[in-house]
Design a protein around this nucleic acid. Structure first.
Length: 326
DNA sequence: GAGATTTGACCCAA
DNA sequence: TTGGGTCAAATCTC
């Protein structure tokens, strides 16, 4: 416990001084090394086997059970298969697993099968041309993803996807247990960025969030740009390796070079219909600052990015904005 | 004080 | 008429 608390303390210090340390890579490197060592030592002391780790880290409800009914109804076999071969069967760091995305695209951006989604497909040019205000059509294509909710912290908050989102509404949805939250790009006004997303917890498996992206980013400004690790990359990591991320950090403490094979052609890379940052590059190097951000900036959006969530049971944590009584 | 969130009210497509 | 999507004032957080 002392080691964990000490590691959290170091992480907080790093978080508070991260901006200043960006120009001092040596200090940054040493700090991160210290944090990694601390947490690694604490983890080793736990003597947790992969099996135990897996059971304790996730909901008792297995994904294939949770989505069995949906799978039968929609025939979304790919979705189920992706879940089945995802991190649920592999011992991995929860912080990384959390970012792993399983894509279920109702209306893929390009060249996929037609959607059978209940929300309907947006047909370009189909909408009324008379109503410009609050028009729900002609907003571009939709892309729906199912991602794992935050294991630590507020599960309602979608994991960081590299863009800055501002919540502008929340609504109870008929027939759904959980409300739907509405987000739009923080830079909507400045850049007239039309990107929006809706986030809702999956009814029969609250550990997952349904995230629907609408519109494309035109601002190309991210909240924590360098920290954005493409979801496909994380999936590649989870599929290619069975080791945890911690040894990787230990072995490559100065920088972590990651292969991006396949990135750019697959689905679910650009959060909202293709981001200009997602080029055809085949490799990229993420520095310590990025990795630190990826490690600790797990709560997503603009709220809840603090270490407190790491210290709270998921059930007891509440979003900042929900403290007030209604 | 600026920016983010909440939430009741309003708009509008189905 | 209904319910999803959005607005905007009030409130909160930093």
């Amino acid at each position: 416990m002392d080691e964990i608390v000490y590691g959290c303390k170091l992480a907080r210090q790093l978080e508070s001084s991260l901006v200043n340390l960006v120009c001092q890579p040596d200090i940054l490197s040493r700090t991160i090394d210290e944090i990694v060592k601390t947490f690694t030592a604490a983890k080793e002391r736990l003597h947790v086997s992969p099996h135990q780790y897996q059971v304790s880290s996730f909901s008792p409800m297995l994904p294939h059970e949770a989505f069995k009914e949906q799978d039968a109804q929609t025939g979304a076999n790919i979705f189920t298969q992706e879940l089945m071969r995802s991190s649920f069967t592999q011992p991995m760091d929860p912080l990384m697993i959390q970012r792993q995305q399983v894509i279920r695209s109702n209306a893929p951006f390009e060249g996929s099968e037609r959607s059978r989604g209940s929300e309907g497909e947006v047909q370009p040019g189909q909408g009324s041309s008379l109503r410009q205000r609050r028009s729900r059509k002609n907003e571009g294509q939709k892309k729906t993803e199912v991602i794992q909710a935050n294991q630590f912290g507020n599960p309602e908050v979608p994991p960081e996807d590299g863009f800055a989102w501002r919540k502008y509404g929340q609504k109870e949805i008929l027939g759904s247990k959980y409300p739907r939250s509405y987000y739009r790009c923080t830079h909507q006004k400045m850049y007239a960025c039309p990107a929006k997303k809706q986030v809702q917890r999956v009814d029969h498996n609250p550990n997952f969030l349904t995230v629907t992206y609408r519109g494309s980013h035109v601002c190309h400004i991210s909240s924590t740009a360098p920290s954005f690790v493409p979801p496909q990359l994380l999936m590649d990591i989870s599929q290619d390796m069975t080791q945890t991320i911690s040894p990787r950090l230990s072995l490559h403490s100065s920088s972590v070079q990651l292969s991006l094979h396949g990135v750019g052609g697959g689905g679910g890379i650009a959060p909202a219909g293709g981001d200009a940052r997602e080029g055809p590059s085949t490799s990229a190097t993420y520095g310590e600052a990025d990795m630190a951000d990826a490690m600790f900036n797990v709560s997503g959006s603009s709220s809840g990015n603090n270490m407190e969530y790491l210290l709270l049971p998921a059930d007891e944590s509440e979003p900042v904005g929900e403290k007030k009584s209604s």
